[in-house]
Amino acid sequence: MKWSEFCIHTTNEAVEPISNILHETGASGVVIEDPLDLIKDRDTFFGEVYELNPDDYPEDGVYIKAYLPVNSHLGETVDAMKQAINNLQLYDIDLGRNQVTVSEINEEEWATAWKKYYKPVEISEKITIIPTWETYEPASDNEVIIELDPGMAFGTGTHPTTVQTIRAIEQYINNQDVVIDVGCGSGVLSIASGLLGASEVHAFDLDDVAVKSTTINAKLNNMHERITVKQNHLLSHVSMQADMIVANILAEIIIQFVGDAWKNLKPGGIFITSGIIRSKQQMVQKKLQEAGFRILDVNELQDWVSITAKKI
Rank of each mutant, 00 (worst) to 15 (best):
195 L>F: 05
222 N>D: 11
250 L>K: 06
238 V>C: 15
253 I>V: 13
233 H>I: 12
201 V>K: 04
235 L>N: 04
227 I>R: 01
225 E>I: 06
204 F>P: 02
219 K>G: 07
225 E>M: 07
237 H>G: 14
241 Q>F: 10
217 N>P: 01
208 D>S: 11
215 T>C: 02
218 A>N: 02
253 I>Q: 07
237 H>P: 12
195 L>S: 08
246 V>G: 06
242 A>W: 10
237 H>E: 15
251 A>M: 07
224 H>F: 08
202 H>K: 11
194 G>R: 09
216 I>A: 05
206 L>T: 06
228 T>S: 12
203 A>H: 11
253 I>D: 08
231 Q>E: 12
199 S>K: 08
192 A>N: 08
245 I>W: 11
192 A>Y: 06
196 L>K: 03
250 L>W: 03
209 V>G: 14
243 D>I: 12
225 E>R: 05
207 D>L: 03
223 M>A: 06
193 S>P: 11
240 M>S: 15
230 K>N: 13
216 I>T: 01
246 V>M: 06
223 M>D: 04
222 N>W: 05
252 E>H: 11
218 A>L: 01
210 A>M: 08
231 Q>Y: 09
192 A>I: 00
211 V>P: 03
226 R>F: 05
233 H>G: 12
220 L>P: 03
227 I>E: 02
201 V>S: 05
226 R>P: 04
200 E>W: 01
205 D>T: 02
239 S>M: 14
211 V>W: 03
247 A>H: 07
212 K>Q: 11
216 I>N: 03
196 L>G: 03
240 M>F: 13
248 N>H: 08
249 I>H: 01
234 L>W: 08
244 M>R: 10
249 I>V: 05
228 T>Q: 13
238 V>H: 14
244 M>F: 09
238 V>M: 15
207 D>P: 03
226 R>M: 09
232 N>D: 08
207 D>I: 00
224 H>G: 10
225 E>S: 13
222 N>Y: 09
246 V>Y: 02
240 M>D: 15
211 V>G: 07
255 I>L: 00
200 E>F: 00
229 V>I: 11
216 I>E: 09
220 L>V: 00
246 V>R: 02
237 H>Y: 15
208 D>K: 05
229 V>R: 05
191 I>A: 14
212 K>C: 08
240 M>R: 14
213 S>G: 10
224 H>M: 07
254 I>K: 04
237 H>L: 14
211 V>L: 08
243 D>V: 13
200 E>V: 01
254 I>Q: 06
232 N>M: 11
194 G>D: 06
246 V>I: 05
